[in-house]
């Protein structure tokens, strides 16, 4: 049986790991490679690295970090942040990333999804969708959650699948950083409407939240950051807990 995945996310700034609460107020949580190795050894199924500064100047820092990660890590990993072109994608994949994730750039220019999928395959294209509940409607937001765009989340999810996305990383900005649980509503709805894997993100605060997510939605994976970085939830214990709660996970 295909397993539900647990994916720690490492936010990267200048080659170091950080995690913001609602993307404001950053705290240093260590060396990305060391942290990645620790997570892999505790049973993380995949890793996501997001370069939150993503300027031209630190592009080289990111590439050499990706090369170090690829040399040391034996599970798949995704890299995102500031990807605007096929060339950016090519550099990251060549450095050893298994997948890349694009967000605002895909909203601005949806054809980018098709171009990347055509050149490198759908399997490496993770389209990140940040969503928020505005006037009782789940809509897409960009620029780290600051700017709503006139796009319903469900419509955009269906469209990115058609354009060639291999996976959707869905973050509820309303829940992100709250530690009060994932958004079951929008995660279930998006998972129902697309035929590609959906990774749920935003709101994980304790083990039970992961159980509730997997019980109530058909999403393929759960992503979290700070609860793992600060040791509030241990990945191995989380997966043993989920296994005992009848969730299919890799132990």
């Amino acid at each position: 049986m295909l397993k539900r995945r647990i994916i720690p996310c490492l936010d990267i700034r200048n080659g170091r790991t950080v995690k913001g609460v609602n993307f404001v107020g950053l705290k240093d949580a260590g060396d990305p490679v060391e942290l990645a190795k620790l997570y892999a050894s505790r049973g993380a199924d995949e890793l996501v690295f997001l370069d939150i500064t993503a300027t031209i100047e630190n592009r080289h820092t990111l590439i050499s970090l990706v090369e170090r990660i690829a040399a040391e890590i034996n599970i798949p990993f995704t890299v995102g942040g500031g990807i605007n072109s096929l060339e950016d994608v090519g550099h990251l994949l060549k450095a050893g990333a298994d997948k890349i994730t694009i967000n605002s750039a895909a909203v601005r220019r949806p054809e980018l999804i098709t171009e990347i999928a055509g050149e490198f395959g759908s399997q490496c294209v993770v389209v990140a969708i940040d969503t928020d509940l505005i006037n009782n409607d789940w809509v897409v937001v960009v620029d780290g959650g600051r700017t709503p765009v006139k796009l319903r989340t469900i419509d955009w999810a269906i469209k990115v699948e058609k354009l060639g996305a291999g996976e959707i990383l869905l973050t509820s900005m309303k829940h992100d950083g709250t530690k009060k649980g994932f958004s079951l509503e929008i995660t279930a709805e998006v998972s129902r409407h697309v035929n590609i894997p959906v990774i749920a993100s935003g709101g994980a605060g304790k083990k039970e939240h992961f159980r509730d997510l997997f019980f109530n939605t058909s999403c393929s994976a759960a992503l979290a950051a700070s609860i793992f970085h600060f040791g509030e939830v241990d990945i191995k214990e989380l997966k043993e807990y989920l296994f005992n709660e009848q969730t299919a996970v890799r132990l």
Partner: peptide, 12 residues
């Protein structure tokens, strides 16, 4: 396409 495709992730 009766389940999610690609088959992506950990399986036994």
């Amino acid at each position: 396409r009766v389940d999610k495709v690609p088959h992506m992730g950990w399986n036994n």
